[in-house]
Design a protein around this nucleic acid. Structure first.
Length: 486
RNA sequence: GCGGAAGUAGCUCAGUUGGCAGAGCAUCAGUUUCCCAAACUGAAGGCCGCGGGUUCGAGCCCCGUUUUCCGCUCCA
């Protein structure tokens, strides 16, 4: 475990040193649990996103995309349950360090009292809650001598609001009734899909079963921040909501559970680094749920969730918006011989954290390799074995020396290739050093232009993973790289 | 949120009893160099985390604060 911790620290240091991930606002001592992506990090992140997007939309005829706004009508979050379920006052016991929801704490105490006293206590709590009177609630806890079940003491902190969602004000001019103006930064992207369900279904003429994909930022006001980009206040999700006929959700859940793991394996990540974690405790709307977990240096952790969400979300929006969110199914039900007719579709969700996927790729790619040289001495190199198709830089073009016309030839090759994939040109320092620098950012291919190039038009191609070299005609380079990054 | 440890150049670190701010690597400019972190010359790079105190004098001692790391807690 100690070595794995070291590996995690090494990956974080490497990510910073080579321009993948920086702490946000670092010159102001940072902002907790917020990170920025640097030159190679933003390229890698974009490539992961593009690969996911393409495999979802372009390669599935029955999945289309949307790009919904981060701001949504506040009622969205009442319908989804985020406002009521995740904005409760919290209190900590100073002795046991145990944190409670205030209402749970008081309700538990009320259960131990005679019926009338208990109800009186709950009435008092409800009134104070409605008034937002935290001091009053604290006094209620003190007056009733409510104790922590762990420590058995009444040594409580002040009551604080637990805010899952970031709040901000909508409109340039402050309103007199501030509640009217509150909007939230979305805590998940899924709701942008649900509220657009009919828009997408009608305009793209989709027939069930079909899916809607979306990538985008989401925001959660969590309490503490650790574990680098694994858990962030601002993060990016890649979600797909798949709408199915009620009764078929079980088979589609199974389908997506398997299909999503195949996607991960298609990037060449070893299967034994993954496992499913089936949820035993389900959310009230869920029928089935599982996580795909990856073995990070900090242990097996969730990367992606597959959830069978029933018709909960669409039904909730139907209820709150008073708009029908139903689908007319023309297919014939073999049981009745008539069309299936109108219904609220069931939903299978696949939801993957882009930042976690980024960390997965980095964790799997990072290696400190010990090499034995020809003379028997040992050397080390740090290499990122990023799958070529998502590597930030695909090809480095290197003149062996920066004279004798070699840079000009290299520039021509570079210009020929840069339209097709990301290329990097460098003529500084010895060739070995340049190879190692490319290893450190995960560039899968380097070609070197030397004096022989001037005679027969061939260059050396050097492979990142094996460090092997071979010669090939310069005009074959583009096709070779294109083939390897498919 | 609680407890512990640490913040000196981009990175890794040294800094004597409290007395001129240092090294290696990396960076940049050159010279040299025909295939795996080569050599040489030169340059640049610092509010010693921040604020206060003690002192003739603080990177070093004292207090506070902040950030990071480790452990616990939390994580719909």
């Amino acid at each position: 475990m100690a070595t794995n911790d070291n590996k995690f620290q090494a990956i974080i240091a490497h990510a910073k040193e080579y321009g993948f991930v920086f702490q946000s606002s670092e010159i102001y001592d940072g902002l907790s649990a917020v990170y920025d992506y640097g030159p190679w990090g933003s390229e890698l992140k974009k490539n992961i996103r593009d690969y996911w997007w393409k495999s979802m939309t372009q390669l599935h005829e029955n999945i289309v995309g949307v790009d919904a706004a981060i701001f949504m009508h506040p009622t969205t979050w009442k319908a989804s349950g985020h406002v009521d379920n995740f904005s409760d006052p919290m209190i900590d016991n100073k002795d046991s360090k145990k944190r409670y929801r205030v209402d749970h704490l008081i309700e538990a105490h009320a259960d131990t009292l005679p019926k009338e006293e208990g109800e009186a206590l709950l009435d008092a709590m409800t009134q104070l809650e409605a008034a937002g009177d935290f001091a009053g609630l604290k006094k209620l806890i003190d007056d009733n001598k409510i104790k922590c079940i762990v420590s058995g003491t009444s040594n409580w902190t002040d009551i604080r609001q637990f805010n899952l969602m970031f709040k901000t004000e909508f409109g340039a001019v402050a309103s007199t009734s501030e509640e009217d103006n509150i909007v939230y930064l979305r805590p998940e992207t899924a709701q942008g899909i649900f509220v657009n369900f009919l828009n997408v279904q009608k305009t793209a003429r989709m027939k069930i079963p079909f899916g809607i994909a979306q990538t985008g930022k989401a925001f959660r006001n969590e309490i503490v921040a650790r574990q680098f980009i694994f858990r962030m206040r601002e993060f990016e999700q890649m979600e797909m909501q798949f709408f199915v006929r009620p009764g078929t959700e079980g088979e589609w859940y199974q389908y997506w559970k398997e299909d999503r793991l195949k996607w991960h394996l298609s990037l060449g990540i070893p299967q034994d680094k993954f496992r499913y974690h089936d949820h035993v405790k389900l959310a009230h709307y869920a029928k089935e749920a599982c996580d795909i977990e990856f073995e990070f240096p900090i242990g097996f952790k969730e990367v992606e969730g597959i959830h069978s969400r029933s018709d909960y979300d669409l039904s909730q929006h139907q209820l709150y918006s008073k708009k029908k969110l139903q689908y007319y199914d023309n297919d014939i039900d073999p049981a009745t011989g008539k069309p299936f007719g109108n219904y609220v579709p069931y939903v299978i969700e696949t939801s993957i954290g882009l930042d976690r996927m980024f960390l997965l790729i980095l964790s799997n790619a990072y290696e400190e390799e010990t090499l034995t040289k020809e003379d028997g001495s040992t050397d080390s190199r740090t290499v990122l074995r990023i799958p070529p198709k998502i590597a930030p830089v695909k090809l480095a073009v290197l003149p062996l020396v920066k004279k004798d016309g070699l840079p000009e030839i290299a520039r021509n090759i570079m210009n020929d290739c840069r339209d097709e994939f990301y290329c990097f040109y460098e003529e500084k320092d010895a060739i070995g050093k340049r190879y190692r620098r490319m290893d450190a950012i995960g560039t899968p291919f380097c070609i070197t232009v030397d004096h022989q190039t001037k005679e027969d038009g061939t260059v050396t191609i050097r492979y990142r993973d094996t460090m092997k070299q071979e010669r090939l005609p310069a005009d074959k380079v583009k096709e070779l790289v294109k083939d390897r990054i498919r």
